[in-house]
Design a protein around this nucleic acid. Structure first.
Lengths: 343, 343
DNA sequence: CTGAAAGCGCTTACAG
DNA sequence: CTGAAAGCGCTTACAG
């Protein structure tokens, strides 16, 4: 036995009276082992409770069977769902997950990326710094397969899995307009936020296409509840208030709903309201919130699948993966009008 | 350079014109390196973008700088919060996190535990199988530091971080009784669930101590919303309904609240209601829910701290860690009575 | 303070 | 089908 009482491949070899090479082959299911020898080795390994040492195996086989996941944070529903999706695929393939968060700071993320050397076979990265020139290439080992998630990339060095925010916003606008709304205001998201910008672009494009001549009506927000409340209050001050409000995310829609309730307005009778994301709360508020559902877990699962494909395929050229399509969820805050066309 | 274009310690040594031993010492901050040599090595390593190979380092140093986290699942708020707490401490100490979920099946967990060999310096485990004889010892390398989380253990082989569910239930009962309630019903949790059993025990002990002679009034539940609804409906059918209901968790309390609303009862005027956990929804429902808050992130952080201590301390004897104390959160569903003593 | 060498526990050509 | 040996990229006594 090795020091510390752990069983090594040598112990198994000695006990089974074969060479370590044979033990290794038997355990790894190689073809070139006599059937009876294999059985005997397997049984010996089991009896000794032998468990291969992962670091040693990684070092010689140059494969770790683990995938690194580098995220800004591990907190909250979004990342939780993302990890769930990633984990589901990983388990199915017998891969381990090395998760790493860097809590915002750019230098922290560089370190997190560099520390992955020798620990993982590939990397899933969600990063706001990804579009900084050289950031990825400076910190990532060359040749390591990487898939980016929900990230704007300056070039196509790595495949990216995004959400089709533009298409989702278009779909919501089609729904609202189909339900008869014409004066539709939009509550925007934080400056520089990619998701928010894409959703706003979808709003504008829908107006241009479906209600030509209508002016865009956009109030600022920053994705939190308070900003949604403020936006809602501001909208009610307009001489002619909107007949529908589309918030760039659910949390702001919830704040907006609160403002409408405070003002004594009835949603959707007096004013319709829609969000984006389908947060868990969306189905619990009154009225329940019409929104675009994004399956974050699916996003994670797709990214993982793509990464595993890339790891196995080696350096094949990669077609850009399809973005994830959000799904319209019609609830009570913005119902489909009787007889109107379903979006 | 090594194959694949990666830089190894040899490359740094050659470039710096010293031995690999010196490079290793300089990089690891050992004392016995001349200051100018160290500077030169560090600079060379930086210039070459050298990053030590984690597996190689682990193999020779017998330390991985990573902590394994084995959970039943990665899904939902509980595990998300737990991981957040764990991650916070891990980052502070420069440790990586290898997370593993086994989705319920016992065999899956055994495999997850065994696969940790050579990957981690210690393990954080949350397991419903932990009290099965031999389960832990059969699957865990001897000598590997382990801390269990929220687990009932047959003996004290490993330290356990638990939540003081019994004390929490006592505190809630003190609050309800202090608010003047006398007919307090309890909605129980799933059979065999440790948390649920402890909370029920707290309920019973509080009755025995504070309202001697009162019979316990317990309706079954299984922690989900539907069972809370059923329990609430059942309670209203009693000839004399309770004046307060204490549900073993918030989700059931929410279901119960729904049942009361349906029946036209006003909470808390007609009947008070309390839960346990402080889920995010608790502050959004009407009326807001009085409950016991458990800081799951703190539970995770404490467990991680303890584990790191054990890793560093070697085989010291471990005092059982203190359980986490839940905190009473008084909201509108069960307010403190005017003039009543605060719990 | 520095280097040559052994060793960590595996895998994998290379011979046979 | 099997074994002896080299090698993966580090760290760390051991000499000097």
């Amino acid at each position: 036995m090795g020091r510390g009482g752990t069983i090594t491949i040598k112990d198994v070899a000695r006990e089974a009276a074969v060479s370590v090479a044979t033990v290794s082959r038997a355990l790894n299911g190689h073809e070139n082992v006599a059937e009876d020898v294999r059985r005997m080795v397997l049984e010996t390994a089991k009896r000794l409770r032998y468990q291969p040492h992962a670091a040693a195996r990684s070092l010689s086989s140059r494969s770790t069977q683990t995938i690194g996941v580098v995220l800004p944070d591990l907190y909250g529903e979004f990342f939780s769902e993302l990890i769930r999706g990633i984990d589901g695929v990983a388990r199915g393939q017998g891969r381990h997950l090395l998760v790493s968060s860097y809590h915002g700071a750019q230098e922290g993320q560089g370190a997190a990326l560099r520390a992955m050397r020798g620990r993982v076979d590939g990397l899933l990265v969600l990063s706001p710094y990804a579009d900084q020139p050289g950031f990825l290439t400076d910190n990532l080992p060359v040749g390591l397969p990487v898939v980016m998630i929900n990230t704007r990339l300056p070039n196509d060095v790595y495949p990216v899995l995004n959400v089709d925010n533009h298409g989702g916003a278009l779909a919501m606008m089609r729904h609202l307009i189909g339900a008869g709304h014409r004066r539709i205001a939009f509550i925007g998201g934080p400056q520089g936020n990619f998701d928010a910008a894409e959703r706003e672009r979808g709003y504008r494009d829908a107006l241009a296409e479906l209600l030509p001549g209508t002016r865009a009506w956009i109030v600022p927000g920053n994705f939190d509840e308070a900003s949604g409340m403020e936006a809602g209050t501001a909208l009610l001050k307009a001489e002619a208030r909107p007949d529908a409000v589309f918030a760039a995310n659910d949390v702001m829609a919830l704040g907006c709903l609160f403002a409408f309730n405070e003002a004594g307005l009835q949603v959707p009778r007096d004013i319709a309201l829609a969000g984006f994301d389908d947060v868990p709360l969306a189905r619990f508020v009154h009225p329940t919130l019409t929104t675009m559902r994004i399956s974050i877990a699916e996003l994670g699962a797709n990214a993982m699948q793509r990464l595993l494909h890339d790891i196995q395929a080696g350096g094949q050229p990669w077609p850009e993966p399809d973005p994830l399509t959000p799904e319209l969820v019609v609830r009570n805050s913005a119902p489909t009008r009787e007889g109107a066309v379903r979006a």
